[in-house]
């Protein structure tokens, strides 16, 4: 050993680096297991990467076990340096964020920021070649407003009845008294979430404060064509609970 090297034999009052590493890996493994088993992974991941949660739980758990075994077999006991401690602290910051802000969600602020242009209908995606199936959703309505062919193939037209659940946003340029019902569509994780909105013309007199941003609503109504695509004319507006899985895919 070179002069100046830190050996456990001379400093037995610190933490063992290998054990601390194994502990931190084990903690992250438990977090991934919790994300997987509780379904909380849907808050952060999209279906393409759901596998990351069980994989992370198993792989990080395995790495923790390998590190712990390696620490037991190692003849040296390396103390955790202040630099190592700082790195561990940084790596645990996401856990602190999850604990400090539980149940965090992307809402109207994120929708306004993530819309690639200031246009009324938030997102701006190209209509897919083959229409989707199942109930009509936000993306279908947006695509149908951009592509007559898509609308035809999806059977989406003026006067069609739809039922949508989403949160309220007010994109730039939306007329007074109108609001948009919005949902995020996610591919891999919340960082790539894209907002899709449907403009809603509420019935009766205009009361702007009646529809504050981020309130979840379930709206049944009929679609009507406008210059900016399809608009929703509701016949029922009910408060809704934010769904456990806040995204659509």
């Amino acid at each position: 050993m070179r002069p100046g090297a830190v050996r456990a034999s001379s400093h037995r009052h610190g933490f063992d680096k290998h054990s601390a590493r194994a502990g931190a890996l084990g903690l992250w493994s438990l977090v991934f297991a919790w994300l997987w088993l509780s379904g909380e992974m849907t808050r952060y991941l999209g279906p393409r990467t759901f596998w990351v949660a069980p994989f992370g739980a198993v792989a990080l758990g395995g790495a923790a076990a390998v590190t712990a075994a390696g620490a037991r077999r190692s003849s040296d006991r390396d103390e955790l340096s202040a630099g190592d401690g700082a790195r561990f602290g940084v790596l645990l910051l996401p856990l602190v964020a999850m604990l400090a802000v539980p149940g965090a969600q992307l809402g109207s602020q994120a929708a306004a920021n993530k819309a690639p242009s200031g246009i009324l209908v938030g997102a701006a995606a190209a209509a897919p070649g083959a229409p989707g199936s199942g109930p009509i959703g936000f993306r279908d309505i947006y695509y149908a407003g951009q592509s007559e062919r898509y609308a035809l193939e999806r059977g989406l037209s003026d006067g069609m009845g739809v039922n949508l659940t989403g949160f309220i946003t007010h994109p730039p340029g939306i007329p007074e008294g109108f609001f948009a019902l919005t949902r995020f569509y996610v591919s891999c994780c919340a960082a790539d979430a894209i907002p899709y909105s449907v403009v809603v013309r509420p019935p009766g007199p205009v009361v702007p404060s009646a529809y504050p941003d981020d309130r979840w609503l379930e709206i049944g109504g009929q679609l009507g064509q406008s210059d900016a695509g399809f608009m929703l004319f509701p016949h029922s507006i009910k408060p809704a609970k934010a769904p456990d899985d806040p995204y659509l895919y």
Binding site: L35, F55, G56, A110, C189
Partner: peptide, 24 residues
């Protein structure tokens, strides 16, 4: 606060998605 919520979701989702790849 909406800014805090957006930050936490995006920050955490990037880390959760990336960590297994870092391990790999």
């Amino acid at each position: 606060h909406p800014l805090v919520q957006s930050f936490v979701v995006i920050f955490t989702s990037i880390v959760v998605e990336a960590l297994p790849f870092i391990l790999l």
